[in-house]
Each structure stands twice: as C-alpha cells, then as structure tokens.
Design a protein around this nucleic acid. Structure first.
Length: 437
DNA sequence: TCTGGGGTCCTAGGACCC
DNA sequence: TCTGGGGTCCTAGGACCC
C-alpha cells in the first residue's frame, strides 16, 4: 500500500496524532478504576503537575502548577496522583507509534515527541481523509488503550490548529478534525486565539495582543515582512505562510540524530557537599553517555552546570546557574572517559557553603561513532572500552536500572529525587507485571 | 519548606581573513 | 570632512516546543 521510496514525498495533507493526557492515560490503562475520574501526573521530584485529565482540569487544576499549591484541591476532590514513570510512558509511546507506522508507512511517521507524531498522508484520497483518521484513532485506542486526537491540514501549523479543535470538542468532532477547504481553515483560525498557535509563546502573545492581533486569522492576514520584523525573522515568515496553507515546515527524516544530549535533575534535597555533587554529576554523565551510545555518536564538547540557591542574604528563591565547559581532545562516548573530564569541572564549580538545587551535563558537538577524528596524542577508545560499554548497556537494559554502575556515581544517592507515588513499570519489568486476581 | 527535563532553531555581534 | 567591502566562523542569548 505504501510506496517504498527512499525520498520522503510531501503529501498534500499531513496529520498530527496527539495522545490525550498521555501520562495520565498510561496510568489509567493499568488502573481502569480511574476511568472518568480525575488523574494527575507529577514531574520529577514531584515538583509540579505535568499531565492532567479533563476531569482534573475542570476542577481548576493548572498544568505545570506546583504540586504543593494544588494539594488542597487534589485532596478535596480525591484526585489520583502519580509520580512520573518514564519507563512505562516510553514503552506505551512505542506501542502507539508502531501502530501509526502500520497505517501510514514507516517513512511517513515523524515522531515529534513522546506523545505526538506527524503523519504524511500520502495516497489517502482527499475524500477519505476523515475516515482514514478515524480508523487510525480507533485502532490505536483498541490496541494500546491510549486515546488520541487527530488534526489534519495542508501544513503542520494547520494540523496543530485542527488538533486543538479536535481536543476541545471531543464528542462533537469524534476526536478528528480535517481542514481541507479554505472555508474550514478560515473558520478554524477565527476560533483560535493567537497565543494558542504552535510557535507563539508567551512573549510573542503579549506582543501580538498589543498590536491588536487576537486570533490566528488576524495573524494570517499580516504580510510577511511584518512577520520577519516582529516574530523572530524567518520564523515569523514561515508561521504566516503555514497559516496561509503554504507548507514551510517539512516532514523530518525519522533517522536524524540529536545534536545535543543533556541529563539534568533537581536534587531531592539541597546538596552542600562536594562529594554528593560529584556523585550526581557522575551519574548524569553515565546516563548521558548511554544516550550517546544509543544513537551511535561521540561527543566532543561537554558542559557541566550547577544551580545554586544562596538566598541567605536575600531570603528569596533566587536560583543562579554556573557553567563550565571542556573541549575533549578526541570525541568519545566511553563513560569513564567522559567522567574524567566532567569531574574536574564540578570541582572547579563547587563553592563551599553554597546550596545546590540542581546539576546537569550537556554533551554537544556530536559526531557519528564511525568517523571519529583521532588526535595525534590520544588513542581513540580502544576496542576493549567499546565492548565494555556495550556489555554494561546490555546488562542495565535487561536487568534493571544501574545494575552495573561506576563507583563515582555513589551508592547511597542521598540527593536522588523523590518519586513517592510512582506506579509499577508494568510493561518493562518482569517483576512488576500487572497481576490479575 | 515547596515550581521538571529535555530539546530545537534563529539572530546579533565580535573576531578574523583577504 | 573623511575611515572599504565582503565573507566565514563562533558564541551567547532569546524564543519556542512538549
């Protein structure tokens, strides 16, 4: 059904498939008793709400609002609360995406985030767009238990507009909105506040409002030069064109690799000792190195940063970031080599008496493993190192997190984040399988 | 007491070169 | 009164996304 062609062809219509309240939906799959009940999922460290169901939303809970502020409301209405369980969500995400690939063809699915994919609707006759999307929606729900909403249009921005409308009125639209005529597009844009557009954040929203532009339709009717001047150069031009139905944001090759890899975390409690700061950064380095190896890349630049909260003088929450970077003599993905550069940076950053809230490592300047430029004075990672890394990755992947780890990452991990309300990893750990009684 | 973790793209401006 | 022109590369920072 789908043509096997190396070139990604741009279809006349695209779609975006977006999982409804994704993290909450995943939790509900294993807790059917929570169907139609309010559910929220918290960020790492149980800091704030990052996913909520419609029921929770209608109670007035705010997305990305701090958990402690929402707590009274949550308790009053008996809202189910979960810490985030990324093993579960990652696995459920793959199942959803697999299903989409069966329908649209592997090459026509661009996985945009853990819960969203763009589809290139090639070879779907215009008259059947709605039916096609509805079938996808029903199948995903049947096979994975996760409900999705689908928006279809000639450009990615218009798909997003359609998707928003399909979510706003799930019953009326069946969760599918197709913008395939000028009239429907106009109607949709008139109903979309300009600040809800994909590509318009808080700053631009304020700016647009000040200029008297309130709906997406208002923005669509501005000329491109105005967009270039006022909305970040070519970014603004593209946005206006996409609103007019001229596709500027092409489908991306799914095989593209990341350009930077970061691992950063808030600490479960404030850290003041160098020892723990080192452990944390060593742990993040190991994690980042794993991500690096998974995409078969090596990094040439490494940045370490810490966030301190020295409010002793001001009595205010006033986080400040300090960063240092190193350029490695040779790009590498070997954990202990990366640590060898990361740890001295931590030591340089550390100030006695400071209170640390967060730390992180960013690897950039990534190059494919196959074409590492070797440095005259350094051997590239020996084969032994490479196979050691492979072995560790295999064990950690099949057994459990960090079955094998480096001593520098610490054994007690006092600084680890809180995840008091995490559900089981039903789909990725044998010993956490759901039991049916 | 207490507010996530990862990414992308773009621009402006400085350094440097011929 | 007047101080070239054009190009590249790099970095910091801003804006956005989920």
């Amino acid at each position: 059904m789908v043509k096997d062609d190396n070139q990604i062809k741009e279809a006349r219509f695209k779609a975006i498939v977006d999982c409804n309240s994704f993290y909450c939906s995943c939790e509900r799959v294993f807790r059917p008793d929570l169907m139609n009940k309010p559910v929220v999922v918290l960020s790492n460290n149980d800091g704030c709400i990052i996913s909520q169901t419609d029921e929770a939303k209608s109670l007035g809970l705010k997305m990305t609002g701090p958990y402690y502020q929402a707590k009274p409301l949550i308790e009053k209405h008996n809202v189910a609360v979960f810490s985030s369980n990324y093993n579960l969500y990652g696995d459920m995400s793959q199942r959803v995406m697999q299903t989409l690939k069966i329908f649209a063809g592997e090459k026509n699915v661009e996985v945009y985030s853990v819960d969203e994919s763009f589809l290139n609707l090639i070879q779907v006759p215009d008259a059947q767009l709605f039916e096609f999307c509805l079938t996808i929606k029903k199948t995903v729900e049947q096979w994975t238990g996760v409900a999705v909403s689908i928006g279809t249009g000639p450009t990615k921005v218009l798909c997003k507009v359609a998707n928003r409308l399909s979510k706003k009125d799930k019953k009326g639209t069946n969760g599918v909105v197709v913008l395939d005529t000028e009239e429907k597009i106009r109607e949709a844009l008139l109903q979309t506040p300009v600040g809800d557009l994909w590509g318009v954040g808080r700053r631009y929203d304020i700016k647009l409002q000040q200029q008297g532009l309130h709906t997406a339709w208002d923005l669509r009717n501005m000329n491109e030069e105005w967009g270039r001047k006022n909305l970040g150069g070519v970014v603004g031009v593209r946005l206006i064109r996409e609103l007019k139905g001229q596709s500027c944001l092409e489908m991306k090759d799914p095989l593209e690799v990341k350009k930077m890899i970061a691992t950063t975390r808030m600490f479960g409690r404030q850290v003041t000792e160098l020892k723990y700061l080192r452990e944390a950064v060593a742990t993040y380095t190991a994690r980042a190195a794993e991500k690096l190896r998974r995409q078969h890349c090596c990094a040439k630049t490494m940045q370490v940063f810490v966030v301190v909260n020295d409010y002793a003088s001001t009595y205010k929450y006033n986080p400040e970031t300090f960063a240092l970077h190193s350029i490695l003599p040779t790009a590498t993905s070997v954990t202990h080599e990366l640590m060898q550069y990361a740890l001295p940076l931590v030591e340089k950053l550390y100030k006695k008496g400071s209170r640390y809230l967060k730390a992180g490592i960013i690897l950039s300047d990534l190059v494919p493993q196959s074409c590492i430029q070797s440095n005259l004075f350094n051997d590239i990672a020996t084969n032994t190192d490479q196979s050691l890394m492979e072995t560790i990755d295999n064990i950690n992947c099949s057994m459990r997190d960090d079955a094998v780890k480096f001593v520098s990452s610490g054994l007690t991990r006092h600084w680890k984040m809180r995840q008091e309300l995490r559900s089981s990893r039903f789909t990725s750990r044998w010993n956490e399988l759901k039991e049916v009684t």
